[in-house]
Amino acid sequence: MQTKSLIKYIRQGIPILFILILFSFSIMAIVSELKKDSIESVWLYLKSIPHWHKLTALAMTILGYGLMTGYDLLGFAHIRQKLSPLKVAFTAFISYAIGNTVGFSVLSGTAIRYHYYGLAGVSQVKIAELIIFTHLTFWLGLLSISGVVSLVDPLTLPSTLKLPFDSIHPLGYIFLSLVLIYFILSVTLKHSIKLKEEEITFPKPIISIGTIVVAGLDWGLAAGVLYLLLPVSNSMTYIGFFGIYIIALTAGLISNVPGGLGVFETVMLYLRPQSVSPSDMLGGLIAYRIVYFFIPLIVALVLIGIQAWKTKNKL
């Protein structure tokens, strides 16, 4: 029994150890990039960001998180359940605000949806189907947008990476091929899975197209927030910058480091235009973390507190 328990603890600890190692390497890489700069230069860039850029970035963040609720609204259309759009928006916002910042969105977002949608009377099976839908369509949207950007304005990759291709152009064909396979399956697969008294079906093509539109606007706004907070407009087009953003975002997601912290910044630093100094890039990334991650997190925690207070007073 002790041996089995030990093996269980080791298996549980390996992913955490891997995340810590990856995070440590990311921090070391950031420090290495900043060795010619000082913390003061990062702070100076933060103070130099125009106020209208900060306010516009905040407005785009609000709009972006509003768009994220579209994933859940489309999900409810897919699972054929009716729920007040306000309740859906409330739960979706909290789920994304906490999941994006804390990380492990598969766990944190899932727990939040089970709690609030369960209180609203949605069955556990339907909530599970909704969660599968949101995660599936998230990657569908990401592959679709990444594929288009990779073909329209392919990013040239640094030779130091020693990859078999010089740009992300080939990845565009791979990503869009995966999206095409998905749509073929959505048209041809007519069978549903019976689970208890509920049926789980493959999303209809029209709903999948809707999620791609939502994803395109969502990621477009998210990249736009960072683009506004960085001094890259004179050296790189928005589309070209979007390619870097998607690569950094994907690396952060795959790493499983909470919020992609460190990993996202490392990729952005390595792929930045040469005209942008590491300290300016890091300053913009810190501003982005504050505007796009921490402010929504604070709002979400306040909303949770208000909701808990209302529930307590009703009892």
Rank of each mutant, 00 (worst) to 15 (best):
G259H: 06
I209W: 06
I247T: 09
L253W: 02
A300G: 03
A92K: 03
K310H: 11
I27P: 09
I7T: 12
K194C: 00
E33S: 15
K35M: 02
T237W: 04
V148C: 03
I286W: 15
M281F: 05
L178R: 00
F23R: 01
V31Y: 13
S279D: 13
A128T: 14
L253G: 12
I79A: 03
I295C: 09
V232D: 04
L282Q: 02
G147V: 07
Q307I: 01
L178G: 11
Y45T: 03
I132S: 14
K314N: 10
I304Y: 03
T156C: 00
W43I: 15
K314L: 14
S159G: 03
S32A: 09
L180N: 00
T134E: 13
M236G: 02
L297R: 05
V148K: 02
L119W: 03
Y71N: 12
A120H: 02
L34M: 15
N313Q: 11
V299E: 01
I79E: 08
K36M: 04
L221H: 09
Y9H: 12
Y114H: 06
I79W: 07
V152C: 00
V152A: 14
S5G: 09
T61M: 13
L195R: 06
G103E: 06
L119R: 12
L178C: 12
P15A: 07
A287K: 08
R272C: 06
I181L: 14
L228R: 06
L17M: 07
Y96L: 01
T201I: 14
L271V: 06
M236L: 15
F90G: 02
Y288P: 01
H191E: 12
L161C: 03
M281E: 09
W219A: 10
Q81P: 11
L136W: 06
K194Q: 08
D72R: 08
H191Q: 14
S146K: 02
L229A: 10
S277N: 05
L74C: 11
A59L: 13
G121S: 07
M236N: 05
F93E: 08
Y9M: 08
S48C: 04
G259D: 05
K82Y: 09
P278F: 08
Y292L: 09
I131A: 03
R272P: 02
D166V: 05
D280S: 13
L20A: 12
L63F: 15
W309I: 11
Y173C: 01
F183N: 01
G284H: 13
N256K: 13
Y9W: 07
T201P: 00
K4M: 12
I246R: 04
D218R: 12
Y117A: 10
W52S: 15
G66N: 14
H169G: 09
T3F: 05
S233Y: 04
S41L: 12
S277W: 03
L86C: 00
G305K: 14
I174V: 15
S208N: 15
V267H: 08
V213I: 15
V42M: 14
P158G: 04
S255W: 02
I306K: 12
E199N: 08
H53T: 10
I145V: 15
F293T: 03
S38E: 08
G172S: 07
